[in-house]
Computed example of a mutant assay.
Amino acid sequence: MPTRPDTTIKLIIYYQSRKTSQLLIKNKETNEKSATQEETDEKSATHEDHVTYEHKCNNENCRAHTYIGMTRTSLSRRLTCHLKNGAIHEHYSKHHQRDPTLHDLVTGNMVLDKEKERRRLTLLEAIYIALKKPNMNHQTRDLQTLPTLK
C-alpha cells in the first residue's frame, strides 16, 4: 500500500515457465556485414524462406500502418498472396482505394528473423506481434501461441 492516499501502484507480475524459455531461447550467429553485402541481402530477402517479416505501408500519409507475418515458403511467394487478399490487401483497398502492387509489398518489407523449425517460427511471429503490436494484423481466432498468454 502506498504511503500517500492519492497514489496508486501498478503491479505487473511476470511468470516465465521453463517450457517457454526452452522453446524460445536459442543461440544465434551474428556477423558483421559490409554495405554491399547488406544491399545484396535486401535484394535476395524475397527469396528467403522460413522467415518472420514486417510490412510497413510505404504511402507517405500512412507509414504507421504495419503488418507482421511469417512464411515457410519463399517470401516472394507469400507477398504474391498478399496481392489478392488478406490484411495488407484490405488496408490498401480501404485506405488507398486501390490494390497493392508487388512494388508496394517488396519495398515495404523487412525480414525480422529466420527459423527453419516450424514451431519456433510460429512462436517468433507471435512474439513480434506481441512486442510491436502491428495495426494491420487482425486475429480472427484465438490461437494463444505463446504459453505465457494462456
Rank of each mutant, 00 (worst) to 15 (best):
H91N: 02
M136H: 03
H138R: 15
I9W: 10
C57T: 02
A35D: 09
I12Y: 06
E90C: 04
D104I: 04
S34T: 15
L75P: 01
E32R: 09
R118N: 12
T101P: 06
S21V: 12
T52G: 05
K84D: 10
P147D: 08
K43T: 11
N137V: 14
T73I: 13
T20W: 12
I68C: 01
H103M: 03
T66I: 13
E54L: 14
E42A: 10
T148I: 08
R18L: 12
N31C: 12
A87P: 03
K33I: 15
N137Y: 06
A126I: 06
R72M: 08
E48T: 02
A45Q: 14
K116E: 15
S17P: 03
P147Q: 07
S34N: 04
T140L: 14
D6M: 00
D104K: 05
R72L: 03
K28M: 10
V106A: 03
I129V: 15
H89E: 09
A64H: 13
I25C: 11
D41A: 12
M136Q: 08
T66C: 11
Q97R: 12
K28C: 07
T40I: 11
E90Y: 09
V111H: 02
K94W: 03
H91W: 03
L146C: 03
L75K: 02
L24H: 06
H95W: 03
L105W: 09
N137R: 10
S44Y: 05
A87Q: 10
T46D: 00
T122K: 13
L149G: 01
S44K: 14
E90I: 01
G86M: 09
L102R: 13
K84P: 00
L24Y: 07
T20C: 11
L124H: 11
C57W: 01
E117Q: 15
Q97L: 12
T36K: 11
K56Q: 12
L23R: 14
T148P: 00
N59A: 06
H95V: 11
L23T: 04
G86R: 08
D99C: 08
H91F: 03
T8D: 02
R77H: 11
E39D: 06
I68L: 01
